[in-house]
Design a binder for these strands. Structure first.
Lengths: 176, 176
DNA sequence: TTGAGTTTTCAGTATTAAATGAAAACCGTG
DNA sequence: CACGGTTTTCATTTAATACTGAAAACTCAA
């Protein structure tokens, strides 16, 4: 009993550390702290959790918990689980790392790559008719960027749609 | 003369749009707006520019211009150029898209991947001795994340150190 | 249809990040 | 070594973002 208890304490400590630090990292990633914390919490939760449990665990308000849980659901990083005979919602995280990766990659592509591509296409178009040397140089630089970002976008799609095993196999060649 | 002038105007318009929007995109990427704007400005500048020119062009303060120019230099995305007989510094951007990509990849790795890896290693270590089912599950999840992030980190290195031509060639297989 | 349990919204507040501008430090030249 | 031009720093201000908490809306069972 004593050891089990001591181990449970140790686990709680490690998990709290993970959640707190993962949250801090989130900010570097351009994700808000609470969202990253909830994600970390649920990724390492043995059971699905309710909003209230999340609130209590992270000591945050209902509104904050709610907003970020919904945002995580929108990303697809967590799911709503309904337990029969229970009214309130439970949340559980996607735990498969390859799934997590593809979800994050898809979302980043949508939010970071696609708008960039749209802008580059627009600017390339707008500057295509300009015949001055500066105009041509501008157009060339924009096109180079556009080509590259478009290429990166396609790559991202391809990799994301691979089976994990295949991606690893391919990577093995590169790393070998 | 008239047409050249009209074209110059058109170019200025397109370039301003690019700079402004690239700045807005920067925020999505977790890069501050000014830094992204300066980068866009210099990437499309026909000549190296001084701090004062950047300030004037973007209508920002000296402190802001200075801080972000230095930050871009630290990243390696722009360089200081000294003109002989001139005292003040000029800045020019790296224009090669593959170079830009590898620089950004390296920086992101440093700021996003490595701290995550360190955290995961620490948490894996701290939880390795816990023999409860919850402890084992936690440890397994952390290890899965650690393995994956470590793998991603290695991949990033490999790709970044490739010659552009080789990367394209490899990609061609994937996209074909 | 009422009311307890639960989710959602949002105006107000707090926190964090970025920008300003002026002063200080720096640096080459006369 | 003093002076004008230039860069750097940093306390203060401003802007952007996140969080709170309470009210409103929703939902289901009695």
């Amino acid at each position: 009993m004593k050891t089990v208890n001591a181990q449970a304490k140790k686990l709680k400590l490690a998990r709290d550390e993970f959640v707190a630090q993962w949250g801090a990292l989130g900010t570097q990633w351009g994700i808000n702290r609470t969202m990253a914390q909830i994600h970390a919490l649920l990724m390492t939760a043995p059971q699905p959790m309710t909003t209230d449990e999340v609130m209590e665990d992270l000591e945050i308000s209902r509104g904050n918990a709610h907003t970020n849980l919904k945002e995580l659901v929108a990303w697809g990083l967590i799911r709503v689980v309904v337990k029969k005979g229970e009214r309130r919602e439970y949340f559980e995280a996607e735990k498969d790392v390859w799934q997590i990766f593809t979800i994050v990659a898809r979302e980043r592509k949508r939010r970071e790559i696609e708008p960039a591509l749209a802008l580059l296409a627009k600017c390339a178009e707008e500057s295509s008719g300009i015949e001055t040397p500066e105009g041509k140089a501008f157009n060339n630089q924009i096109r180079a960027l556009e080509d590259f970002v478009g290429f990166a976008s396609k790559m991202s799609d391809r990799i994301s749609s691979m089976k994990y095993g295949f991606a690893v196999q391919m990577a093995a060649k590169l790393l070998g």
